[in-house]
């Protein structure tokens, strides 16, 4: 840990970043707050409505449904991706030619443009031309993600697992690699079972990276937009309309500035709370990591 020297002139080095981000963040945020308490019929003519949009939003079924859908989606994603990521990371080779092959092929989905991820799965799942859809259909399984909400959900979830499990794998793998061989040898001499090696050696070492993985996955899945937008467009009906999709529909599609602004603010507050928890947890773990937690 570097002992930092106090120097107020450092502000000048940060100033360019501060100005650019403030331009893109503060002005829009102020505008959203302004819109959220007014109504408009266009042409920049606004009427004061006070807290009405917030009241309407909080009591609207549409918002509740989108919020619950979002929570359910993020919950399912975490429940699948985290255990799966741990299992794969444990099974990955530690040395030899297998390591770069695994790393490169696993990183590939992370670096595909999100709308192309959507396109890939849109094609892959189609009954007429997609490998997955066609195979399922020839097995006699009724699967059509444009008609059936459950199939649409399954498609979006499998797509997200495909897209992001690698992140969990790579993080856990980095955590596992930091365990010295001596630990395993000691466990072998003690005759420890596979489970106790995992429970008492590997899991504690992965704690920090696992926490990062969980928080990152939760927050990123909480603002998912592009992939489901491309695959299902939020449908069939509203069954895959997550928070961001609903918000963009309202703001850009219907141009309902007031309600969209109110929803933006509530959404933003939830994210702000999550980021604060994330940052606090991370920095506290960072302070404790000197006594053993590995990078």
């Amino acid at each position: 840990m570097i002992v930092k020297q106090t120097n107020q002139k450092a502000w000048f080095m940060v100033l360019p970043v501060f100005l650019v981000v403030a331009f893109s963040a503060v002005i829009p945020l102020m505008t959203v707050v302004n819109y959220s308490v007014q109504d408009t019929f266009g042409n920049n003519v606004f009427f004061w409505v006070g807290m009405d949009w917030f009241k309407e939003l909080i009591h609207s079924d549409r918002f509740h449904a989108a919020f619950l859908r979002q929570l359910l989606f993020s919950g399912i994603i975490l429940a699948i991706e985290v255990p799966l990521g741990i299992v794969i990371a444990l099974a990955m080779p530690r040395k030899g030619w297998g390591v770069p092959v695994c790393l490169i092929s696993m990183a590939l989905p992370l670096l595909i443009p999100w709308n192309v991820v959507g396109t890939i799965w849109q094609i892959f799942g189609r009954v007429d031309i997609g490998l997955l859809g066609h195979s399922l259909a020839s097995l006699g399984i009724d699967y059509n993600y444009t008609q059936d909400p459950i199939a649409a959900w399954l498609t979006v979830i499998v797509m997200d697992v495909w897209h992001w499990t690698s992140l969990v794998v790579l993080l856990c793998y980095a955590g596992l690699c930091s365990i010295p061989d001596a630990y395993y040898q000691a466990a072998k001499i003690d005759g420890a079972s596979r489970w106790s090696v995992f429970r008492y050696i590997q899991l504690p070492k992965m704690q920090r990276v696992l926490l990062i993985a969980i928080l990152l996955r939760f927050m990123d899945s909480f603002m998912i937009y592009t992939e489901p937008f491309v695959i299902t467009g939020g449908g069939p009906g509203n069954s895959t309309t997550f928070m961001s999709i609903d918000l963009v529909k309202m703001a850009v599609g219907q141009f309902d500035l007031g309600p969209a602004a109110a929803m933006s603010l509530v959404y933003f507050l939830v994210i702000l709370l999550l980021s604060w928890v994330f940052y606090t947890v991370m920095s506290n773990i960072g302070e404790n990591s000197s006594n053993g937690g590995g990078r």
């Binding site: 940060v14 970043v17 501060f18 981000v21 893109s24 963040a25 002005i27 829009p28 945020l29 505008t31 959203v32 819109y35 927050m219 909480f222 603002m223 937009y225 928070m243 961001s244 918000l247 963009v248 703001a251 850009v252 500035l257 969209a260 602004a261 933006s264 959404y267 933003f268 994210i271 702000l272 999550l274 980021s275 604060w276 994330f278 940052y279």
Partner: peptide
């Protein structure tokens, strides 16, 4: 300041889409 910068990394772009168009 550092935390404020990070919140912008974590904020959903959908929140900013509407005012960005006008800005």
């Amino acid at each position: 300041l550092f935390f404020w910068l990070l919140t912008n990394r974590m904020a959903p772009p959908a929140v900013f889409a509407l005012p960005f168009f006008q800005l």
